[in-house]
C-alpha cells in the first residue's frame, strides 16, 4: 500500500505533463484536424527556451515561463502561416509529411546549436525531498502539478468565455457550419495553433527543470500525446485531462508492478484495443463521411 501511494503520486506528476502536451495537441489535431508530428519539438523547444531564460539570461523562473509562452506563440503563429496553411490549401494530407520534415529539421537545428548534452532549467525552488505521509516528492514535481492545474483552469475559462473559445467549440462541432455562421476560420486557426504550441512549450519548460532537455526530448511524448487525444476523443478538453492523467498513472503502476520495459507499450496497446472496439474513439461520435 505504501508502494501504491508512491506509484500513484509519480503517475500524477508525469500525467500532468502529458495533460499539457495533449491539450495543445487536442486543439491542433482534434479541432484544426492537423496531424502535427512537430508538436513534440514544440515541447523540446520550450525546454530549451527555459534553459536560456534561467541559465543564460538569468531572469528567474517566472519571467522565463513568460518568455517561453511569448516565443512559442510567435513560433506557432509563424509555422501555421508560413508552412501549414499554404500546404493545407493544396492538399491537407501533405501536412503530415511537412510536419514530419519540420520535426527532423527542428531537432537537428537544435542539435547543431545546443549539442547533444542534456541541459537543466533552473527552477530556483529548494532542492531535496518533501515527505507527505509515505510519499516522497520534490518541490519541483509539486510545482509541475500545480502549474498544470492553473494552466488547465485558465484554458477552460478562456474556452468558455471568450470569442476564441466560442468559435473553437463551434468549429469542433462542425467546421462548415461554423464558417457559414461567420466565424473567421483562418484567424481562429492561427490563434489555436499558437495556443497549442505555447502549451507544449510550457510543458517542456516545466519538465526541463526535473528531467532535463535534449534535442530528441519530444519524439516519444508526441506519440503518447496522440494516444491520449484519440482515447479522449478528438478535441475534447475534459477528455484529454482525464486520459492524460490516466496514462501517467497506468504507466507508473505498470513500471512499478510489471517492470520498466513495458511502460511505453501500454498506451499503444490500449489505443489499439479501444479503436478496435470503438472505431470512432472512446468518446467520439459515429459519423459517415463521403
Amino acid at each position: 500500500m505504501i508502494l501504491f501511494q508512491q506509484f500513484l503520486a509519480n503517475g500524477v506528476v508525469v500525467g500532468s505533463s502529458y495533460v499539457l502536451v495533449a491539450l495543445g495537441l487536442t486543439l491542433i489535431f482534434g479541432i484544426l484536424k492537423i496531424v502535427n508530428f512537430a508538436h513534440g519539438e514544440f515541447y523540446m523547444l520550450g525546454g530549451y527556451v527555459a534553459v536560456v531564460g534561467t541559465q543564460v539570461l538569468g531572469i528567474g523562473p517566472l519571467p522565463s515561463i513568460v518568455l517561453v509562452i511569448v516565443v512559442m506563440v510567435m513560433l506557432g503563429w509563424f509555422i501555421e502561416r508560413a508552412i501549414f496553411v499554404p500546404i493545407a490549401k493544396k492538399d491537407p494530407t501533405n501536412v503530415i509529411i511537412a510536419s514530419f520534415g519540420l520535426s527532423i529539421l527542428l531537432q537537428n537545428i537544435v542539435l547543431k546549436i545546443a549539442g547533444p548534452e542534456p541541459m537543466l532549467a533552473r527552477s530556483g525552488l529548494p532542492r531535496g525531498a518533501i515527505q507527505i505521509g509515505n510519499i516522497f516528492l520534490t518541490s519541483e514535481r509539486l510545482a509541475i502539478v500545480a502549474l498544470a492545474a492553473v494552466t488547465v483552469t485558465a484554458l477552460l475559462v478562456v474556452l468558455k468565455y471568450t470569442w476564441i473559445g466560442l468559435s473553437l467549440r463551434a468549429m469542433s462541432e462542425n467546421a462548415t457550419v461554423a464558417r457559414i455562421c461567420g466565424i473567421n476560420v483562418r484567424r481562429v486557426g492561427v490563434v489555436t495553433f499558437a495556443i497549442g504550441a505555447a502549451l507544449a512549450g510550457l510543458a517542456g519548460a516545466l519538465m526541463a527543470t526535473v528531467f532535463t532537455v535534449q534535442p530528441n526530448a519530444g519524439s516519444l511524448i508526441v506519440m503518447k500525446a496522440f494516444v491520449i487525444v484519440v482515447l479522449a476523443g478528438m478535441g475534447s478538453i475534459e477528455g484529454a485531462i482525464i486520459a492524460g492523467l490516466a496514462l501517467g498513472i497506468v504507466e507508473s503502476l505498470v513500471t512499478g508492478y510489471l517492470g520498466n520495459g513495458l511502460r511505453d507499450i501500454v498506451g499503444f496497446i490500449f489505443v489499439m484495443g479501444v479503436l478496435t472496439i470503438r472505431p470512432q474513439g472512446l468518446f467520439g461520435i459515429q459519423t459517415d463521411r463521403s
Binding site: F29, V35, F226, F268, V271, P279, Q280
Partner: peptide
C-alpha cells in the same frame, strides 16, 4: 475513420 487510422498504424 480518418486520422484514427493513421494513429492506429503508428500504435
Amino acid at each position: 475513420q480518418g486520422h484514427f487510422l493513421a494513429i492506429m498504424t503508428i500504435a
